[in-house]
Amino acid sequence: MDLLFLGTGSGVPAKHRNVSSIALKLLEERNSIWMFDCGEATQHQILHTTLKPRKIEKIFITHMHGDHIFGLPGLLSSRAFQGGETPLTIYGPVGIKQYVLSSLRFSATHIKYPIKFVEFSDNECIFQDTQFKVTVRKLKHGIPSYGFRIEESDHEGTLQADALKAAGVPFGPMFGKLKNGEKVILEDGTVIDGKDFVGPSQKGRVVTILGDTVRTNASIELAENADVLVHESTFTHKDVKLATSYNHSTNVQAAETAKQANAKKLLLTHISARYLSNDVYELQKEAQTIFPETYVMQDLKEISIPLERKGDELK
Rank of each mutant, 00 (worst) to 15 (best):
Met1His: 06
Asp2Asn: 11
Gly9Thr: 12
Ser10His: 10
Pro13Tyr: 05
His16Asp: 14
Asn18Gln: 13
Ile22Asn: 04
Lys25Met: 07
Glu28Asp: 10
Asn31Ser: 13
Asn31Trp: 01
Met35Cys: 12
Asp37Gln: 05
Glu40Phe: 15
Glu40Asn: 14
Gln43Gly: 00
His48Cys: 03
Arg54Cys: 08
Lys58Pro: 04
Phe60Pro: 05
His65Asn: 12
Gly66Cys: 12
Gly71Cys: 13
Leu76His: 08
Phe81Ser: 11
Gly84Glu: 12
Pro87Thr: 15
Gly95Tyr: 12
Gln98Arg: 13
Tyr99Met: 15
Thr109Gly: 07
His110Thr: 08
Pro114Arg: 07
Ser121Gly: 02
Asn123Phe: 01
Glu124Asp: 08
Cys125His: 01
Phe127Gly: 03
Gln128Thr: 08
Gln131Tyr: 02
Phe132His: 03
Lys138Tyr: 04
Tyr146Cys: 11
Tyr146Lys: 03
Asp154Glu: 10
Asp154Gln: 06
Asp154His: 06
Asp154Pro: 02
Gly157Val: 14
Leu159Trp: 10
Leu159Asp: 10
Ala167Met: 13
Gly168Pro: 12
Phe171Leu: 15
Gly172Ala: 14
Lys177Gln: 10
Leu178Met: 06
Gly181Met: 08
Ile185Asn: 00
Glu187Cys: 01
Asp188Ala: 02
Asp188Val: 05
Gly189Thr: 06
Asp193Thr: 01
Lys195Gln: 12
Val198Met: 12
Gly199Lys: 14
Val207Thr: 06
Gly211His: 08
Asp212Trp: 00
Thr213Asp: 09
Arg215Leu: 07
Arg215Gly: 03
Thr216Lys: 10
Ser219Phe: 00
Glu224Trp: 02
Glu224His: 15
Asn225Arg: 15
His231Trp: 06
Glu232Val: 01
Phe235Val: 12
His237Trp: 01
His237Thr: 00
Thr244Val: 12
Ser245Trp: 12
Ser245Asn: 11
Gln253Arg: 01
Ala255Leu: 07
Thr257Glu: 05
Lys259Arg: 14
Gln260Trp: 03
Ala261Ile: 08
Asn262Phe: 05
Leu268Ile: 02
Thr269Leu: 04
Ile271Tyr: 01
Leu276Trp: 14
Val280Leu: 13
Gln288His: 07
Phe291His: 04
Phe291Ser: 05
Pro292Glu: 09
Asp299Leu: 04
Leu300Asp: 05
Ile303His: 06
Ser304Pro: 02
Pro306Phe: 02
Glu308Phe: 03
Arg309Val: 09
Gly311Asp: 06
Glu313Arg: 02
Glu313Ala: 04
